[in-house]
């Protein structure tokens, strides 16, 4: 019997910023096409952990990891791995919307242009499809050449999601994607996450426990660089097995 291959896996992962031990011996396995939420108080390491999956931490001087991070069973910190190829496979949406100072259209097709795709029809088609998937198409379809910076915050964030989808990743990392948005935009993003999980494996970091409850299938609770608990979201919120989880979700700290 062959061992089950998970979409994303961490095995005894330790991470350091210089001397600071940011992630301590983390073991986790995440199912394909499911939404996993990372929760925990500020500085617990959840964002750091999220950013190991597309190696965005590589830019930070003094950052290093021990242990394995596996994508489809393959170690992404392996020397043979091309980081840019990895990031095409693992898309990311950031806390603050960060559209490029270009047109809406150019934002969406940026990833394709990087790969040298110049065919107008292909670009046009992908842009339309991605914007539709990100539930932004109807709002911008007549203004594709307008500057992306002119959009509202919520629209900008959906544009960033469309931008990530355009290069057809299989994993989508979301680092508090709604924390800078108003409630209506937040609701739209959450709705979108629901839609997207049919096709993508989604990992979302959030400060908002209600949000975790609404959007995720699984939830992982981090505390002081440790993974305290990881289970079905409903189970974690209704009957946490660790007292620290209990304290956090009942609002005693954080």
């Amino acid at each position: 019997m062959s061992k089950k291959v998970y979409k994303l896996e961490a095995k005894n992962l330790n991470a350091y910023y210089g001397n600071f031990h940011a992630l301590k011996g983390i073991d986790i396995a995440m199912e394909e096409k499911a939404v996993t939420a990372f929760i925990g108080p500020s500085g617990c390491g959840k964002s750091t952990f999220l950013r190991t999956f597309n190696r965005m931490n590589d830019f930070i001087e003094g950052f290093r990891t021990e242990g394995d991070i596996l994508l489809d069973g393959r170690d992404i910190y392996d020397k043979k791995i091309r980081v840019d190829e990895l990031r095409k496979e693992v898309g990311m949406v950031f806390q603050k919307p960060n559209p490029f100072p270009k047109s809406i259209f150019e934002n969406v097709v940026y990833g394709l242009r990087l790969q040298g795709i110049k065919n107008k029809a292909v670009l046009q088609e992908t842009a339309e499809k991605s914007l539709q998937r990100a539930a932004l198409w109807s709002e911008v379809k007549d203004n594709l050449n307008k500057s992306a910076l002119a959009l509202s915050g919520g629209q900008q964030q959906r544009l960033c999601i469309a931008r990530a989808l355009a290069i057809s990743p299989s994993v989508l990392l979301m680092d508090e994607p709604a924390s800078a948005l108003d409630p209506i935009s937040t609701a739209k993003i959450e709705e979108l996450i629901h839609e997207l999980k049919n096709d993508y494996t989604i990992v979302i970091v959030t400060h908002n426990m209600q949000q975790a409850g609404r959007v995720s299938d699984y939830t992982a609770f981090f505390y002081m660089g440790e993974l305290v608990e990881h289970s079905k979201t409903k189970a974690l919120f209704t009957s946490p097995s660790d007292t620290r989880t209990q304290n956090y979700i009942t609002g005693r700290f954080g």
Binding site: I76, K80, R82, D84, E85, L86, S170
Partner: peptide, 13 residues
């Protein structure tokens, strides 16, 4: 499944 080390050696060079 994806192919992480597809060679783009010209780009790298």
């Amino acid at each position: 499944m994806f192919h992480l080390n597809s060679t783009f050696s010209t780009l790298r060079k």
